[in-house]
Design a binder for these strands. Structure first.
Lengths: 338, 338
DNA sequence: TTGAAAGCGCTAACAC
DNA sequence: GTGTTAGCGCTTTCAA
């Protein structure tokens, strides 16, 4: 068995409670005793058992982080940041992947909640009703979904989508497509609402296509419809869809940005590395991760009684190489015979 | 407070131990009683507290997963697979990022080890000495580093590197570079050894350059030296370095694969999406993650007494678009007479 | 400032 | 089959 508080007590000739205090309330113990106990503990290689501590304090010092798909490049920076921030606050974090499955998500939360002080839900697919029930068990913070009554961190993709439409309009395009994401995605809805509004204002015809899988496959599959639609610009649900679309378009002889301009969302690594470099809407995922952890910890320490807050993080359009003015003859120059 | 075993006992008119048994040893309890207890538990929304259980059983049903950098596209598929496999076995997993810092890595292991039954170390940067000491505390399984006496899952990048050199040689190249990774990287050392051997066999001059940061920046920074070196092919530590190198080469007017062939390692998403599509050595990360979890669980259940095993997973060269025969005038290669 | 004792939620002998 | 009891490692009153 590992070395416990009792071993340290025996070896340093004090009672267990004194050892306990040296670690959890050092100011309550005589400086001399404390240094001695500390030295003995160090020598024995003692490490407090957080789980045992949690049993009496009710604080596990663990957090749960639940995401739809770890392998989606949108999440790793968020996970990394959240985890780093948590560690800074002396918290460990469980990471779980739901594979976009609401049932699994629920099961995960329920089994996890006894072991954590709070749960970070990233782009949850759960129904409002279930969330409503679960929130009684454990404090939540939600990322990228609007849920009234819950503390939420939103990346304001709507704002970015509006700017993207402006950008496209400014370039001279008149017809553009929006490739939406999964049905239950808040981000997708926000984009749709904002893009619709901005398009109306700039007198742009907006063709909505979706839902699409939020992957390169989704973009690839949409290429035919996009090419046939005659739009000269496309705003995609995320970078992967955009990258897949560009690939699919290229296979059909449609050049990006020569014939069609393409915009993604996320500012992910693949997009930055791609050729042409992807024009995209940055998502401040790392900042969101850090902020979500801090809000969650605040809720935990307030006994979950604190008023739910809503944090809105700005997004920005990063113009790179996948957008350009439309071809003068109205697009589709490649297919135009002389 | 949440509902405990005691609440269930009271509500169903049995003793706590009976409730405990219904969950941890159902066969020991009368079928009738069992269904009644289960029903009551269900109604009350009872969920066993795993941490409390761990206190008596010594089994936390948690695993630790420690990686150098979550945001490095090499890791997410591994994390996802490991986490999924663990869940299948009814285990939760802590994920922690060391930021490539050995001290942090050690600290993480030490604070985590009381809360987990075992730790998965992915590409650890820790010194052998420290690992030797830590392994007494908690069972380890190591991924991608050779550590005698420890159960290890290796992705045989050496094999892939050998095939890569053959591929390059077959294309007609005579001088190639190897961009190595971080000093402490086992993968990098393996590549170096295998590439050196293969190059000698095929009578290829191998220029070793490094260490390089394992990122696009690292590749970008190496472009100057590569361009100046006069090699016509480069094997890179990973896809990111390869992608950065391609970018840096392009900035200097060096075409890939026209002037220089480039090979990466990982078969990561950005590489698959890149233009030209990256020729790369696949790393079976998902399989490694699953296997590592199973080996770890086996060690845990064997009381860590089981003999350390060594699993070697095959890698493959995937030839895509970033490699080609060298330009005839550019190399003293194919046409060099005897 | 320190010790004694109770108890967190649960399991595991051991009795009955 | 089920109840009794002790105890996992730790914190936290309450006394001293």
């Amino acid at each position: 068995m590992a070395v416990t508080i009792r071993d340290v007590a025996r070896a340093s000739g004090v009672h267990v409670s004194t050892v306990s205090r040296t670690f959890s309330a050092p100011h309550l113990v005589n400086a001399e005793t404390r240094t001695r106990v500390l030295a003995v503990a160090e020598g024995l290689g003692y490490r407090p058992n957080r789980a045992a501590r949690a049993l009496t304090t009710g604080r596990t010092h663990n957090l749960g982080l639940i995401v739809a798909d770890i392998a989606n490049p949108f999440f790793p920076p968020l996970i990394k940041a959240a985890q780093a921030q948590a560690r800074e606050r002396d918290y460990h974090v469980f990471v779980a992947d739901t594979d976009e499955d609401p049932l699994l998500e629920q099961e995960l939360i329920e089994t996890l909640c006894k072991q954590v002080d709070g749960v970070l839900l990233c782009s949850p697919r759960l129904s409002n009703r279930v969330i409503e029930r679960l929130r009684a068990q454990v404090p939540f913070v939600v990322v990228n979904r609007r849920l009234k009554g819950l503390t939420t961190v939103l990346m304001d993709v709507g704002q970015g989508a509006g700017v993207a439409v402006e950008h496209v309009a400014g370039l001279g395009h008149r017809r553009m497509a929006l490739l939406t994401g999964p049905q239950s995605s808040w981000t997708s809805e926000e984009m749709l609402a904002a893009a619709t509004l901005a398009a109306r204002e700039r007198d742009i015809e907006l063709v909505v296509m979706g839902p699409n899988e939020p992957t390169e496959q989704g973009g690839l599959a949409a290429a035919r419809a996009v090419a046939a639609s005659g739009v000269t610009a496309v705003l995609c649900y995320n970078d992967l869809v955009a990258l897949g679309l560009i690939e699919g378009l290229r296979e059909r002889g449609v050049d990006v940005p020569g014939d069609v301009s393409v915009i993604g969302v996320d500012d992910s690594l693949p997009g930055r590395l791609n050729r042409p470099k992807l024009t995209t809407i940055t998502m401040p995922t790392a900042a969101a991760g850090r902020m979500a952890v801090d809000l969650l910890l605040a809720a935990v320490n307030a006994g979950d009684a604190g008023t739910p807050t809503l944090a809105r993080l700005e997004t920005h359009l990063v113009v790179r190489e996948s957008t350009a003015a439309p071809a003068r003859d109205g697009g589709r120059s490649i297919l135009t015979p002389t």
